[in-house]
Amino acid sequence: MQFRTQIPISKSNTPIDYNSKVLSIGSCFAENMASKFDYFKFQNETNPFGIIFNPVSIEKLFNRVCKEEWFEEKDVFFHNERWHSFEVHSDLSNSDRQELLETLNKAISETHKQLKEATHLIITFGTSWIYRILEKDEIVANCHKVPQKQFSKELLSVEIIRESVQNTMSLIQTLNPNINFIFTISPVRHIKDGFVENQLSKSHLFSALHNILKSEIYNLKSEYFPSYEIMMDELRDYRFYNEDMLHPNQIAIDYIWKLFSENYISESSISTMQEVDEIQKSLRHRSFNPESDQHQKFLAKLQQKINRLGEKLPHIKF
């Protein structure tokens, strides 16, 4: 007997392995998945400009990165004793304007290099709702607690999202024609927008994205991972949510990662993942008697495992 519905997932045509270079961009769920890549020691970079939720803001950042358009003084502003940019997350904000500009431009330079070398780009879209700063008539990635009256709130149409995603892909393919795209929709519900409004927002993302993915131009280098569908259908129980009842908890993240790794990571990498997992668990082990001979032998054996793995894959560091 089956007591739950399971989402069918197609195996990737271009699976990720330990030689792959992965760049992850998007919502907070992108960071949940990236933490798994980090744990298993894949070559992975995540959200160099912080968490970004909407497709247009992601496109704007990739436009800067691909063309190496540096941030200038006109692109930052002072509010609540810190300098900010409307194009990036507040995690990058700084009390010193010059330091902020240096941080942003370093992120452009490094991301440009990573994008040229990347084998896979994972983009996680969170919402179709955007805020537009009225003074500049520009869509922002983050409002930085600037008073709400200075913004208008809008829902991106399916057509605008489709064009934005296509523009993003074209920009990136100009820089790196061989890159593989993996798209997903964040399972986190943006209830501050309203329950009905959240569903509408997600539906616009789905419609735009699947319209692109079924096109012959894009489907050879693009795949879709159903993280939203897994959360809503396979894990449709509040025991899989954090206390806010909106974000997936660790059990849910582990389960979604399991399905992702079974379908998007090469079979040849599974044994290495198991080795890494054993080492990670051993490193977290705390001995009752650190000076004992038994513990010293344990540490020596652990170091041998780390050295053997390092010989096979020099980029892996613990």
Score class of each variant (00 low, 15 high):
residue 164 S to R: 05
residue 165 V to P: 00
residue 165 V to L: 09
residue 166 Q to M: 15
residue 166 Q to E: 15
residue 167 N to A: 14
residue 167 N to I: 01
residue 167 N to Y: 02
residue 168 T to V: 06
residue 168 T to A: 06
residue 169 M to Q: 13
residue 169 M to A: 12
residue 169 M to S: 12
residue 170 S to Q: 12
residue 170 S to I: 03
residue 170 S to W: 00
residue 172 I to T: 08
residue 173 Q to T: 10
residue 173 Q to F: 05
residue 174 T to E: 15
residue 174 T to L: 12
residue 175 L to E: 08
residue 175 L to N: 02
residue 176 N to F: 03
residue 176 N to Q: 08
residue 176 N to H: 06
residue 177 P to V: 10
residue 177 P to F: 11
residue 177 P to K: 10
residue 177 P to I: 09
residue 177 P to L: 11
residue 178 N to G: 13
residue 179 I to Y: 08
residue 180 N to K: 15
residue 180 N to E: 14
residue 180 N to D: 13
residue 181 F to Q: 04
residue 181 F to S: 02
residue 182 I to H: 05
residue 182 I to R: 05
residue 182 I to Q: 05
residue 183 F to I: 05
residue 183 F to Q: 02
residue 183 F to A: 03
residue 183 F to M: 06
residue 183 F to D: 01
residue 185 I to M: 05
residue 185 I to E: 01
residue 185 I to N: 02
residue 185 I to R: 03
residue 186 S to M: 06
residue 187 P to N: 07
residue 187 P to K: 07
residue 187 P to T: 09
residue 188 V to C: 01
residue 189 R to K: 14
residue 190 H to I: 03
residue 193 D to H: 11
residue 193 D to N: 14
residue 194 G to I: 03
residue 195 F to M: 13
residue 195 F to A: 12
residue 195 F to Y: 13
residue 196 V to M: 10
residue 196 V to E: 13
residue 196 V to D: 07
residue 197 E to M: 09
residue 197 E to Y: 11
residue 198 N to S: 06
residue 198 N to T: 09
residue 199 Q to A: 10
residue 201 S to V: 04
residue 201 S to K: 13
residue 201 S to A: 12
residue 203 S to K: 07
residue 203 S to N: 11
residue 203 S to I: 02
residue 203 S to G: 08
residue 203 S to E: 01
residue 205 L to G: 04
residue 205 L to I: 13
residue 206 F to K: 14
residue 207 S to E: 13
residue 207 S to Q: 14
residue 208 A to V: 07
residue 209 L to C: 03
residue 210 H to N: 14
residue 210 H to T: 06
